[in-house]
């Protein structure tokens, strides 16, 4: 039922295709329907008010012509949208691949220069090399994100299945964000049940999801803020929540939080860096893993982002012992 309703959500359809509402396929089909009904009514009235066979044939003929013209232009319109969309995703994919070779070269040459061949470099030069390396890593991350978005849009984001220890994974992400947290004076706490069942998923991808939520909760926190990470196993799924007491998300922007390239006003005010791709990618990874992602936020009070992951049948809580 939801699926049927969704196909009538013209705004969403248009947003996804990157066109205006009146050019979305759904709208065009409704238009086609209206034209057919109008034309048939016209033919009906003509046939009722006239006994002339010529009139009747003429109006039938006109109806066929109108339908062909309108139908054809609608099909052309949809084809054009589909083609533009395909070119767009292919462009991102090719551009990203071509970008990654020179980025890898810079990555490895810098490693040689600041490592094995660093003899004779003074401290200032080493510091400069380090900065260049940080910039290059940022660029690689951005290209990787764009590639992921292209894959998501093409429905080709590949996930592997492996056994994962959630607690260990969360510890790893917190450890990786330690410097960021201490530089902003943010304390991170983890709360979990003694026994959290093992889950199956793509470890590398889920690390990205956790890293995104946890680093966001640090970056957009208030000074001396707190971050609470809670893991709650339920009967058929496990829920991970990351809570901060930061700036929060303005009410009118909440519906866009998971849209690609979207960045909330509060975020831009506090942090100029960022692409608005992180949560879009994170949510899609979770959805594709069979879970869901949602959030709760109060402006000025903080936000809580949660996601769920399904438990394997034999690992379901209470049955694993």
């Amino acid at each position: 039922m939801n699926k049927i309703l969704d196909s009538f959500n013209l705004k969403k359809q248009a947003d996804q295709l990157g066109v205006s509402v009146w050019r979305s396929p759904g709208f065009l089909f409704i238009l086609l329907g209206v034209v057919i009904i109008a034309a048939m009514l016209a033919v009906y009235f003509v046939s009722r008010n006239s006994d002339s066979v010529e009139y009747l044939l003429g109006s039938e003929f006109a109806l066929v012509i109108v339908l062909l013209v309108v139908g054809n232009s609608i099909i052309n319109g949809i084809n054009e949208i589909a083609r533009a969309n395909k070119i767009k995703t292919e462009f991102i994919s090719i551009a990203s691949h071509q970008l990654k070779t020179p980025l890898s070269e810079i990555n490895w040459e810098l490693e040689l220069l600041s490592g094995k061949f660093a003899d004779g470099l003074n401290e200032k030069q080493k510091e400069l090399l380090k900065n260049v390396n940080v910039s290059n890593c940022k660029m690689i991350r951005l290209v990787n994100d764009l590639l992921d978005v292209a894959r998501i849009d093409q429905g080709k984001l590949p996930l592997v299945s492996e056994e994962i220890d959630l607690i260990e994974m969360i510890k790893e992400v917190i450890e990786n964000n330690k410097n960021l947290a201490s530089s902003r004076n943010v304390k991170i706490k983890t709360r979990s049940y003694v026994q959290v069942p093992k889950i199956v998923g793509d470890r590398k991808r889920l690390l990205v999801v956790l890293d995104n939520l946890i680093s966001n909760s640090i970056k957009y926190n208030s000074k001396k803020g707190r971050v609470d990470v809670a893991i709650t196993p339920e009967k058929e799924r496990v829920i991970i929540c990351v809570k901060d007491n930061g700036v929060g998300i303005p009410k009118n922007q909440r519906k866009n939080i998971f849209s690609k390239f979207f960045r909330s006003d509060n975020v831009i005010k506090n942090q100029t860096e960022g692409t608005g791709l992180g949560l879009y990618i994170a949510k899609n990874i979770v959805l594709q893993s069979g879970g869901d992602m949602w959030f709760d936020s109060e402006e000025g009070e903080g936000s809580t982002f949660c996601f769920s992951l399904p438990l394997e049948e034999n690992e379901r809580y209470g049955l694993s012992d």
Binding site: S104, E105, W108, E109, E111, K116
Partner: peptide
């Protein structure tokens, strides 16, 4: 086939 990458690996692994 990328000369720079090949050379970098040669240098690194060689050392």
């Amino acid at each position: 086939d990328e000369v720079v990458l090949n050379k970098a690996l040669q240098d690194f692994l060689g050392s």
